[in-house]
Simulated assay, not measured.
Amino acid sequence: MQPWLVVGLGNPGPAYANHRHNVGHLVVDRLVARASAKLKAPLGMRAELAELRVGPPGSDAPRMIVAKSRTYMNETGGPVSKLIKYYKITPAALIVVHDELDIDPGQLRVKFGGGDNGHNGLRSIRASLGTGDFYRIRFGVGRPPGRQEAADYVLSNIPAAQRADYDVEVERAADAVESLITAGLDRTQSAYNS
């Protein structure tokens, strides 16, 4: 059985680590921590990744490769395409976790397929794969206040006062990833789409 590929979108490096745009990276970090695993950066992959199981250790639980691109958001498609080819994964076994301006903070939406809605990471992946037919876990960050530009908003740190709420939502998004793999789309949407 082919493994699942879970890609958390974000930008590389500590300067971006706590930005709203990097919630996908935070979810991957949470999945890795749950498994007491470590991310590695294999030569030539342009990504940090870990191979995990969804379920009890030693079981026949599904495998998942979790990854964070080491490229900037608008170049994510190249590393994702390379990982899909290397692990012989179809796009239908790809789950992309990303920030979503059109969803309020504290809410998730799980879906299959669709456009990129102006998200540079999704646009890059769709262009590299030639399809948008993959799963998405859309992590609500809300719209910027007042006249603030959307790019400035997502490329700013999660405010300290909201950090605990984001931590809860990162946990829920990690749960949603595991649910999608073990329970399927319909049940996961019923449980997590707020």
Score class of each variant (00 low, 15 high):
50 A>K: 06
50 A>L: 03
51 E>H: 04
51 E>R: 10
52 L>A: 00
52 L>W: 03
54 V>K: 05
54 V>W: 12
57 P>I: 08
57 P>D: 13
57 P>H: 02
57 P>T: 08
58 G>K: 09
58 G>A: 11
59 S>H: 03
61 A>W: 04
61 A>N: 03
63 R>P: 07
64 M>W: 07
64 M>E: 06
65 I>Q: 07
66 V>E: 14
69 S>V: 15
70 R>A: 14
71 T>V: 15
71 T>W: 01
71 T>P: 04
73 M>R: 06
73 M>N: 12
74 N>A: 15
74 N>E: 04
75 E>N: 15
75 E>S: 12
76 T>K: 02
80 V>A: 12
80 V>H: 03
80 V>M: 03
81 S>Y: 08
81 S>G: 10
83 L>F: 11
84 I>L: 06
84 I>N: 08
86 Y>E: 09
87 Y>E: 10
87 Y>F: 07
88 K>E: 08
90 T>E: 11
90 T>Y: 13
91 P>Q: 02
92 A>M: 15
94 L>H: 00
96 V>N: 07
97 V>E: 14
98 H>L: 10
98 H>G: 06
99 D>T: 07
100 E>W: 10
100 E>M: 04
101 L>V: 04
102 D>H: 10
105 P>N: 04
105 P>S: 06
106 G>Y: 01
106 G>F: 02
109 R>G: 01
109 R>K: 11
109 R>I: 07
112 F>Y: 08
112 F>E: 06
114 G>Y: 08
114 G>F: 06
114 G>D: 10
114 G>I: 12
115 G>I: 15
116 D>T: 13
116 D>A: 05
117 N>R: 13
117 N>Y: 09
117 N>W: 07
119 H>G: 11
119 H>W: 03
121 G>E: 02
121 G>K: 05
121 G>D: 01
121 G>I: 09
122 L>Q: 02
123 R>A: 13
124 S>Y: 15
124 S>C: 08
125 I>N: 13
125 I>A: 04
126 R>Y: 11
126 R>V: 12
126 R>E: 14
129 L>G: 13
131 T>E: 14
132 G>E: 08
133 D>N: 09
133 D>T: 01
137 I>N: 10
138 R>T: 07
138 R>A: 06
139 F>V: 05
139 F>N: 07
139 F>S: 01
140 G>S: 01
141 V>C: 06
142 G>F: 11
142 G>H: 03
144 P>A: 09
144 P>V: 05
144 P>L: 09
145 P>K: 11
145 P>H: 14
146 G>N: 09
148 Q>M: 12
